Simulated scan of single mutants.
Amino acid sequence: MRRRAVGRAVMSDAVAAQRVREGRRDAFLLLVDRHSAAVHAYLRTCLTDRGEVDSLTEETFRRAYAVALRGTEPYTHWRVQLLTTARGLAVSAWARDPYSMNVADGFRYWAARGGVWPLMARSALFEAYRSLPLRWQTVLWHTAVEEDGPALTTDVLGLPRGQYTTVTGRARQAIREFYLDVYRRAAVRRPSCTAFVQSYSRRPAIVSAAEWARARAHAIRCVRCGEVELDLSDIGYQLCAQLPAALLGWWHDPLYREARATPLPMSPPAFPRR
């Protein structure tokens, strides 16, 4: 059962972090409440020992609390920052004993290879995502990647529940526009590709059937434009497929979703102490 905290429904992650900097230690419990299950689930894809997973979950939040107290602005939204910290702690646990039975086999293999990022890490969709304002990045991660749902997503953003659909739609439209704008600049010397982008960016209200047919035919012949069409045909699926590995390096989607679906009880965090 999720804890209830004062002001939880109206305090965004950003405001909670600001309150921590102002001395409101209880505000950090909002971040723990919203993100601890995800951190715990992620660590369960890295390590097999329950006690170590619990310990590193707590250490992840201890470090995040120290960051919030210093007033250091996160380079990304809180969920990804916390998962990034958890990944680093898991890598350190592996490095201490690479052959430990407490390290999950898949994570051990990834770490032993040097923690190599996948080839799609610098994809056009990823670049468009990183070009978005942090607010839209947050919306897309929680809705498209983790499918956290309206209640948690609006709490993270500090929005009324009724704005969920509007904000989600705007975020998806924003990344679509950023993506096409980036590709348009890259294709400026390729007239046929430029025409494809113009047609694709205007559909479906303005583009005629003949123009749309020409754009589709071009996408079949052109590998680069074909990738654009694939990315934007189901942008939610592509974000889910590309973003986690690109941002975190290690990501085992089936294990993570299984862990999120079967949450394990965790001991109350031993911080922040008064």
Rank of each mutant, 00 (worst) to 15 (best):
A68Y: 08
A86L: 00
R62I: 10
F61P: 11
R79F: 07
T85Q: 08
L82Y: 02
R70V: 03
R62C: 10
V53I: 15
F61S: 06
L56E: 12
R62W: 02
A66M: 06
T48Y: 03
T45G: 03
V80Q: 10
E58T: 14
A66D: 15
Q81F: 06
H77Y: 09
Y65A: 08
L69E: 14
T84L: 11
A86G: 03
T60D: 09
R44Y: 01
R79Y: 12
T60R: 12
R44A: 13
S55N: 11
E58N: 00
D49F: 05
P74T: 09
L83H: 04
E59M: 14
T60M: 09
F61V: 08
S55C: 09
A66C: 02
V80F: 05
G71M: 08
C46V: 04
W78F: 12
L82A: 07
C46F: 02
R62D: 00
A68F: 10
L56C: 11
T48R: 10
L69S: 09
V80L: 11
S55H: 15
P74F: 02
L56K: 07
L83S: 04
G71T: 08
R70C: 07
S55G: 08
T72H: 06
P74D: 03
R62G: 07
R63I: 13
T84I: 05
E52V: 12
H77S: 14
S55Y: 12
L47Y: 08
V53Y: 13
Y75R: 14
Y75D: 15
H77D: 10
A64Y: 14
R63P: 06
R44S: 15
T60I: 10
Y75V: 15
T85W: 00
F61M: 03
L43W: 05
Y75C: 03
L82W: 02
A86Q: 02
D49R: 11
S55V: 03
D54M: 12
D54T: 12
S55P: 04
T57L: 10
T76F: 13
A64P: 04
L83F: 07
L82N: 01
R44F: 01
H77P: 07
R50K: 14
A64G: 10
F61A: 08
A66V: 13
T84Q: 01
Y75F: 09
R62Y: 05
Q81A: 13
D49E: 13
H77V: 01
Y65C: 06
V53E: 11
T72F: 06
E59F: 05
A86P: 06
E73K: 13
Y75E: 15
L82C: 00
L47V: 05
T45R: 07
E73Y: 00
T48P: 00
E58P: 05
T45L: 04
G71I: 04
V80E: 00
Q81Y: 01
Q81H: 08
D54E: 13
L82H: 03
D54N: 12
V80H: 05
D49L: 09
G71W: 07
R50W: 07
H77T: 14
E73D: 14
F61T: 02
A64Q: 14
T72Y: 02
V67S: 08
W78S: 14
R62M: 05
A68W: 15
Y65K: 04
R63H: 13
T84W: 04
R79Q: 14
L56S: 11
A66P: 01
Y75T: 15
L56T: 10
R62Q: 08
A86E: 07
E52S: 13
T85I: 00
H77A: 04
T57A: 03
T85K: 01
E73A: 13
C46P: 06
T84M: 03
R70H: 07
D49Y: 01
